[in-house]
Nucleic acid binder design. Structure first.
Lengths: 362, 362
DNA sequence: TGACCTTGCAGAAACGTACCTGTCAACGGG
DNA sequence: CCCGTTGACAGGTACGTTTCTGCAAGGTCA
């Protein structure tokens, strides 16, 4: 029998298709498509009628078919680095959560959704999802996933400037050197004579830039570097490293910790050694966590502004996807924010009357 | 001209398709498909040859086409509740991050990826992504999104037992009543005479069940309830509520806080009122955060085991998607874990010599 | 009355894959 | 020699859209 004699029965596969809507509305498929997508030249009456019939049938356009036809899926990959089997690390929880939250919002506002894709994931998963582009967090030096994506012609925007010659479409980052130098100056201003650093053994850009900045600052002011490095993805190692740092014979009288849990770890270590904060030890750490506002004493933190980064990254990516000639530069530097609290407050105030508020407060 | 005379040129649209591979390998499209997907009856030589040619051409199958054809996208929605514009709330950061992490891993291991989709998101985003199923966190009473998904015949598994008659495929939850009762007994054992509760004003199941359990416990032991409720999604309100609770004339001598930041907030409030923990005030809060291990003093926490929940939810969902007749029940209760620390340790030890180590330590 | 445009819609060709249905050769048994 | 079987492939259709290209009917203008 010829196929002309076997017309599709309505809703053959359960769900109503555009054909069923067309048949029910007594118009052509084209008209339905145009009516629902606001295209074509149709009188409002037809448009309304089609919309109404579609509603009545509970018609939902097939995302797969649309993607196949248009080449756009409306999906953005969110690539996170992994340690071991787990996506994203404990250390970065607060940062990642805030960043992902902002990215999700920003993407959503422009009609995109985010797909979580660990960088080391099975290749078949990567190739099984149609992405319009990808946000990659802290890409490693020769990330094969990123190279592959770029080779496929997909836009890739990275959070953190790409190491090496990774050819990303755009990137967003903080000025980590400036942030570290600012903190060291802040601590020195507060009376620190020997500033220590709690850093990581990993080779990512953040750790590397921050450590280098510290070493350069030490050289400039003529201080011997005092630092301990530990594998940042191991939460227990951080406590041990904090302890080691304060147990050294050349114990620092101020410490900056590069990672989120360093603040509580250093505080605990200080208590063990009977050091008062900030009297005997000034403390600053890089964190997005709110707990440091209520610790005893509250701890000064550096915020990397993950919300702004997440938003900026997504905007850049979607601009690239949609071919918008953005007036934004493709390399954006987001300023950090130092939230000064008791743990780094001036050791010997020159006066007992309250000093004028610095612009950093409030 | 007839279309037979316009054969497709190789890689017309930039990327190589299955046709190009077939042409280059000198076989048919069917053979390529079978060879790459491990189906059909092909000699190994042909299979290897096709695979090699595909590799050489950098062939990547189109996820959209595959999805359209097979009806499976390999994508799972991760629906989070929203407060205001932002997906998921600050209060649930640690819980959500851990849960999402475990869910991502579990999905990945079975070849699926997660799409973050706030429940209140624009409808066009929801309908623009082809989902095989959805995980929904803490579905509200009459969640329109969930109803819609179920009506489309998609499997929906919820984290948290569904309120009302929400027809989810399966759910995973803790036994919140039992957990609260256990904590109250634990505090009473430690010498608490009047136990207070820091709870929320929202109507979600977790808050409701926990508060009810508290009230019932009070009734049973004959204690007047002492609690403060605040909008849990507002981080500042938590500190105020903690303060209010300790400022009451009928001040409790032990407090359980239902939300993650309650521990530090209560600790700070206790300091303001000169209360020593645990001597004057026993403290427990529900949290997944590691900071409570290093506060002064360390605070006893209840863990809801988000990793286990995330894993279980995804397994149930994928079983439903793939039609696996799971031997797991469709309603799973994950046990909670009370991590006992100094803040809830027995007030008047019977002896001054160090007690034997309890199995919970270490 | 043509020539020409505009309006309102229909037909049909992709998009790239998976899979059902042949087809053809080789082979073996009766 | 015939028939059934099996291995190794090719053809072609369907998945559900979007969109390009018609194509009549009606209006306008010379």
């Amino acid at each position: 029998m010829s196929r002309a004699e076997t017309p599709r029965r309505g809703s053959r596969s359960g769900r109503a298709g555009i054909r069923d809507v067309a048949a029910a509305a007594g118009v052509s498929i084209t008209t339905v498509s145009d009516a629902l997508n606001g295209k074509g030249r149709l009188p409002d009456a037809t448009r309304r009628h089609v919309r109404e019939v579609a509603d009545r049938l509970g018609y939902r356009p097939s995302a797969a078919a649309r993607t196949l036809r248009t080449g756009k899926s409306g999906l953005i990959g969110l690539t996170v680095t992994t340690y071991g089997d787990e996506p994203f690390t404990f250390t970065e929880f607060a940062y990642f959560a805030e960043m992902a939250r902002a990215a999700t919002s920003a993407a959503l506002a422009r009609g995109y959704a985010l797909v979580i894709l660990p960088a080391t994931s099975r290749h078949d998963v990567w190739s099984n999802v149609a992405l319009d582009g990808t946000v990659v967090i802290d890409p490693s030096d020769q990330d094969p996933v990123v190279s592959e994506l770029v080779r496929q012609g997909l836009p890739v925007v990275s959070d953190g400037r790409p190491a090496g010659a990774l050819p990303v479409t755009a990137w967003v980052d903080n000025d980590h050197e400036a942030a570290v130098l600012g903190i060291l100056d802040h601590l020195a201003d507060a009376g620190a004579r020997r500033i220590g650093l709690l850093t990581g053994t990993t080779t990512d850009t953040y750790t590397h830039l921050s450590t280098t900045a510290y070493l350069r600052w030490c050289e400039r002011v003529g201080q011997d570097p005092v630092y301990e490095a530990y594998p940042a993805h191991d939460p227990c190692a951080g406590a041990v490293a904090a302890d080691r740092l304060l147990a050294r014979p050349d114990r620092p009288d101020a410490v900056y910790g590069l990672f989120d849990p360093n603040g509580t770890d250093l505080l605990a270590a200080a208590r063990r050694y009977g050091l008062r904060v900030p009297d005997d030890l000034l403390l600053v750490c890089c964190s997005e966590s709110a707990v440091y506002a209520t610790t005893e004493p509250p701890i000064t933190t550096l915020s990397l502004k993950p919300r702004r980064i997440g938003t900026a990254v997504v905007q850049l990516l979607i601009d690239a996807i949609e071919g918008v000639e953005s007036d934004q530069p493709v390399e954006q530097v987001i300023p950090t924010e130092l939230i000064v609290r008791t743990s780094s407050e001036r050791r010997s105030p020159r006066t007992t009357v309250s000093p004028p508020r610095s612009p950093e407060e409030g």
